[in-house]
Design a protein around this nucleic acid. Sequence first.
RNA 1: GGCUGCGUGCCCAAGUGGACUAAGGGGGCGGAUUGCAAAUCCGUUAUUCGUCGGUUCGAAUCCGACCGCAGCCUCCA
Length: 563
Amino acid sequence: MSIRIYNSLSNSKEPFETIEPGKVGMYLCGPTVYKPSHIGHAVGPVIFDAIKRYLTIFHGYKVNWVVNITDVEDKLIAEADAQGIGVFELAQRVEKNYHDALAALAVDGVDHFPKASENITQIIEMIETLISTDYAYVVGGDVYFNVSKDDDYGKLSNRNPDDQTGQRELASGPKKHPGDFALWKQAREDEPDAVKYDSPWGKGRPGWHIECSAMSKRLLGDSFDIHGGGLDLIFPHHENEIAQSESCTQKPFAKFWMHHGLTRFNTKKVSKSDPEMQAALQAMTLSTLLEEYSGELLRFFILSTQYRSPIEYSPAELAGKKKGLTSFHRLFKRVNDLGAGDVYDAPSAANADTFKLDPQALGDEAQQLAASIADARDRFQAAMDDDFNTAAALAVLFELTNSVNRFIEVMSLESSDDAAGKSFALKAAQALASLGQSLGVFLSAPAAASGGDALVGQLVDALLEVRSACRAEKCFELADKVRDQLSTLGVVVEDKPTGATWSIEKQSDDLQGNLIEAHIQTRLACKAAKNFALSDMIRDRLAGIGVALEDRAGGTTWELANG
RNA sequence: GGCUGCGUGCCCAAGUGGACUAAGGGGGCGGAUUGCAAAUCCGUUAUUCGUCGGUUCGAAUCCGACCGCAGCCUCCA
């Protein structure tokens, strides 16, 4: 029952033990807010959010999670200049964009979002300590970290700074060693005043790495449990964080280093600074993706791969995942339609009783389902305990989908009033949902399902009543035409024992107007078939929901009775 | 060149020495159901895990070589 985590520091899986019993301090490197975030930036937050939920729900940990916002940095200054706006104006705008995306992805577990600009004092203090202990030195208005002084520098990335001469035998400039990196950068004349901070070494601003050391120290202490980020940050960023922090405090910095795989597009890393990626990047921006896909789908997509593996992003791949996710939504809707209760309102997976179903006298099928559910929790936990294998955990959920569907099928629950059976199906589905919820999916029913518009719903219902009448009269041609029309509008119809149900699979423009038009077309077809009872029914039904039809010489027009 | 990793069916993806004669998803194919669909259910779709050797009673899993791919060594989640 113990958690094992792959630690980049040792390149092996280690048993997870926290520094303080029952508590986890967790730090994730966040974005530099100079350009909108893309899909790759969502990976860390989604994984860590799922981890926090899991650790909290399944292991009872109290998790304190910090994600930094880098708002003082070269690129940001350059981008603000290019756009002709203030540095912090740009930073705030991009940061809002980032937070909106996280909200859509259901990443709500972050406890602190510290900003570099708000921690200058702590940064300066840390640099002063490093200077006083000779781990750093001042050259003009710059301060550099002295890698030669740090014995175990390179332990995370397995690099020896003295062997790194190879490619960049560049002039080390004012530095003592080419591997030395900036802790503090002297202000340049052309830089905006907003990023010129006072320091003992004159006006300037912090280097990139030091902010994470200073902010994690302030919010999580000298030593904490988990530090995460993308694989591309191992060197130099994380290596340098370790160097700064451990040299400053003389204590171990992060206990576990977790690095997630990078998102790729056409087998190449998605990068904001890669010129070849620029065109494609537009489409991979989180705000763009969220216009077309739900946050839940993007989250599901990210969780369907073990976090250390790279994820290949493509619209086709996302479409495939969407089908998988939809199969859960269908099941939940199917169970909710049984009327025994709301699946989404599931008890917590933390409660073992959620998985103890009593099959009573419901027979073999219920026995089997009860066994599957009980087993699922263990398998789910085993997968998650093994380095947070969300891909394997989701596989367990897929299997349960099948078990519950089969139960509903075999017990014919949709066409019976078997209250005990329905309640059993509900509990099984809730157990399934609770596992997903502990990863941050299945939190609520997909928003688009009902169209979000009462009139649209009434129009579809009315159309389906007409179709039902057609089917009763064995007038299948007309019935199919209705279904086809709806399908074109993105409304998918499914016939069930209890009648037809529908859902909006694809949003389309002016759905309302098109639905009324579909009524008119259907009515025209009825009239052509001399089925006047049906055509009148359509007109009356529409009138009932406030849509008045008028037959004119040039065709039929419609208007809404009251706004 | 140095340092990390990776290579599993048509596609995605778990599994890292023995319940693997390899999860799960997408797709394909057959059947049940349906007026027909859709959805759902049942069945089926890798004797094989980049290639070649080795270790072992036993390897997708360990070792070696080779081939291919990615990341880092400069900013990057």
